[in-house]
Design a protein around this nucleic acid. Structure first.
Lengths: 198, 198
DNA sequence: CGAGTTTTATAACACTGTTGCGATAGAATG
DNA sequence: CATTCTATCGCAACAGTGTTATAAAACTCG
């Protein structure tokens, strides 16, 4: 009896895709509901019936961004050397962030006002953490690292990697520092700090 | 011959103060020009004649935030032990950020759209870096640290400290981790990584 | 073919930053 | 003392935002 639904799942992914494009190419300022709706030939109502509002749309985007991010980290092959694998994860972290800075900003910066990720998506985001924890676990078990809680060691590493990338993307690096070599050196030095002294 | 100026320097600081209050107490969403102007009994024009617009107002706030931040770090007394001084800087960094999270967000997060700090304020912000560099310099000169560029070592430390604080404030910490002890432990481990092996 | 019902597009609302215009208030002049 | 001048400031209009209420659209069923 009703008119046919056009606010279906296909439209949902089209909106999500276009929103990601707008974010990546023109930045957060260009991502308005009117613009988004016009670009996919629908009305702003679609965002409300499919997501529930702009914050909810951002939440879906946030989840998508973390999923991609986690995939890139999980794709890394596991070698015999957990320490070298940890270095790889750190380098991949930066590469992923630089590959799509706007998505990184959605994940870790408050680019959109009145948007705070839901608890569920935050939990999903935390899973990005697991590859690193796993490799740190291998290193501890091998007796390479000191006997500290896995999460502490992994968190420290993630913090440094995340912090350096954030500073770089925000333009807060001190002038005259070439970041790429400093970045890898920092990772290796940090790892050295958790090595067990013999 | 004209009517008396009320958009003077006193009003400038009142606007800046109130803007900081609004940011700290109610968040970036509450910082609108109309609200701000009403709170200090003037009109929105004041912001334009005194600053030049909202981004320029934020720029002034950004500078102020970094000044406070730098002051707290510079106030730390210098002891005989540069390594312990570095730990102190790291702990103070976190305390300062937690003392006024909203200001921290203005400094390192893109909380307000269409605001990017000017080159001048960015340069001023970079000076926050110097106390850490100085202490790292002392540690290198004493032969405690490996012979790497000062800026590299200091940047790595700043990155970790900054990253951990950012993750904490953004709510991106993995669940079930007590951050305070992990934080100090991370700093000490990282320092250990730059220690010269004997 | 018309009544009913669900779904969608349109328009109104409250708000934002920004800008141009006109009212204002005092000093200089007649 | 009144008038003119003029820099200065407050108000209102403009274009834009997210959100919400309303009304039109489109199909099925009687």
């Amino acid at each position: 009896m009703p008119r046919p639904k056009t606010h279906d799942d296909a439209l949902r992914v089209r909106l999500l895709d276009r929103a990601g494009e707008l974010l990546s190419t023109e930045g957060p300022g260009a991502l308005s509901l009117r613009r988004l709706a016009a670009d996919v030939n629908t009305s702003t109502t679609a965002v409300y019936s499919l997501f529930g509002g702009k914050p909810a749309l951002l939440d879906a985007l946030y989840e998508e961004a973390f999923r991609r991010f986690g995939d890139r980290l999980a794709e890394l092959p596991e070698t015999d050397d957990p320490v070298e694998d940890i270095v790889r994860i750190g380098l991949t972290y930066r590469e992923s962030a630089l590959a799509d800075p706007q998505f990184y900003l959605v994940m870790f910066s408050k680019v959109v006002p009145n948007f705070t990720p839901s608890d569920e998506t935050n939990a999903a985001a935390a899973e990005t953490f697991t590859p690193l924890v796993a490799n740190v676990g291998r290193a501890v078990e091998s007796g390479l690292f000191v006997d500290a809680p896995l999460e502490h060691i992994a968190l420290a590493m993630w913090g440094m990697v995340h912090g350096l990338v954030s500073l770089e993307l925000n333009g807060n690096l001190p002038p005259g520092v070439e970041i790429a070599p400093a970045y890898e050196r920092a990772i290796r030095a940090h790892i050295e700090g958790w090595r067990k002294r013999s």
